[in-house]
């Protein structure tokens, strides 16, 4: 294996009676940015801290760059971390913060200075070295934290919800910067977030976690287009989940939706109850009934300028639809008829 790869072999973690992580196996390829995504409390931070060496595994083996580091203390792992709170040392200047890791490695003074300046330049903070962290804005502090982590040229860079303390506008900008730095330096990075949009925007691969386990992993596109469960379908991009009954499994799938038969051009393996996944923008609304359309009533309509969002009541339950802005949108209480393209629909287990 090469420098920068991370491998978990059956790694689990318990805190007393609480299981923070079920034994799991995962592989992270060198030079990629992998995101751990999932709701709060699902074990993302624990996974990250296991890689860092800040927690010790209850079982299993952890390998970094092909070496077994399960019992290696955090100090000696070539892994850096950007903390949610940034954890900048308040009593040191920005430059001293960035130089800290180099200094404790006892590099020559001149090298420390030069590399630290270089790190600051990389995040666009040249000239800020003499300030204290408290004299910087949130976004600048965040970049200092990144610079401090990458000047050590770690094998793996860990980021725990690095954007959660920034305001929404800044978040998009900073996440692009982080991604660019990671790609430019060819770093392996593990990125933790609970924001699926952020995950989709920065990742090569996403590992979705739920209840201390991996729910699904794959590229952002994979996860969106081929959700393996209702949880993933709902978590990665919004989805309407409609109860259906699969009657015919095979290369194409036959099913009944509200007692009406329907054929989908996708493969399935078993018959029985399932859920149809339809993204909000895949639903078309019309005032007149169309062949095979589903009647519904507009319960709430929100006009957002670039789109219109509808909450609808239908025989299949409440549905959520997004359409392009039109001159005369539907109003609350209007009757509408829904259609969708059979090729857009996906099936997940019920």
């Amino acid at each position: 294996m090469t420098r920068g790869s991370v491998r978990f072999e059956g790694v689990g973690k318990r805190f007393g009676k609480v299981t923070a992580l079920e034994p799991l196996t995962l592989d992270i390829a060198p030079g990629t940015l992998v995101t751990l995504l999932g709701p709060s409390g699902c074990g993302k931070t624990t996974t990250l801290r296991l890689i860092a060496g800040l927690e010790s595994a209850s079982e299993g083996r952890i390998l970094i760059g092909g070496h077994d580091v399960t019992h290696l203390a955090a100090t000696y792992r070539r892994v850096s971390m950007v903390f949610q709170s940034y954890a900048l040392f308040p009593h040191m200047t920005v430059l001293e913060n960035v130089a800290y890791g180099l200094r404790v490695k006892r590099l020559p003074k001149a090298d420390v200075q030069a590399q630290a300046e270089e790190g600051l330049a990389l995040v666009g903070l040249t000239g800020f070295g003499a300030r204290l962290p408290s004299e910087l804005s949130g976004g600048q502090q965040q970049r200092v934290a990144v610079a401090r982590a990458i000047v050590l040229e770690p094998e793996v860079l860990l980021l725990d919800e690095p954007l959660s303390n920034l305001d929404a506008k800044l978040r998009r900008h900073v996440r692009e910067e982080i991604r660019q730095i990671q790609q430019r330096l060819g770093l392996t990075a593990v990125y933790v977030t609970h924001d699926q949009e952020e995950a989709m925007a920065v990742s090569d691969r996403i590992i979705v976690m739920k209840n201390a386990e991996i729910a699904q992993e794959g590229s952002p596109h994979d996860l969106y287009d081929r959700p393996a469960s209702a949880f993933i379908a709902d978590f990665i991009g919004d989805a309407n989940l409609i109860d259906v009954e699969v009657t015919l499994a095979g290369a194409t799938t036959g099913l009944t939706l509200l007692d009406r038969p329907l054929t989908l051009p996708l493969a399935s393996i078993e018959t029985g109850p399932a859920k149809l996944v339809l993204r909000p923008h895949q639903l078309q609304l019309s005032a007149e009934p169309l062949p095979g359309s589903l009647p519904a009533e507009v319960r709430y309509a929100a006009w957002l300028g670039n789109q219109i969002q509808y909450t609808l009541d239908s025989a299949a339950g409440p549905l959520f639809a997004i359409t392009a802005p039109v001159a005369a949108p539907f109003r609350q209480g209007d009757s509408v008829h829904l259609t969708f393209a059979a090729s857009d629909a996906r099936l997940v287990r019920g």
């Binding site: 971390m81 903390f83 954890a87 009593h91 800290y100």
Partner: peptide, 27 residues
């Protein structure tokens, strides 16, 4: 003192003794 301060120091390759001396004690 936020625990992440010492963890940051550890992650940057300092051992516990250095962390105590350079980060915790000054604060």
């Amino acid at each position: 003192l936020d625990r992440s301060l010492d963890e940051a120091s550890i992650m940057l390759g300092a051992n516990s003794a250095t962390t105590l001396r350079r980060v915790i004690l000054p604060l």
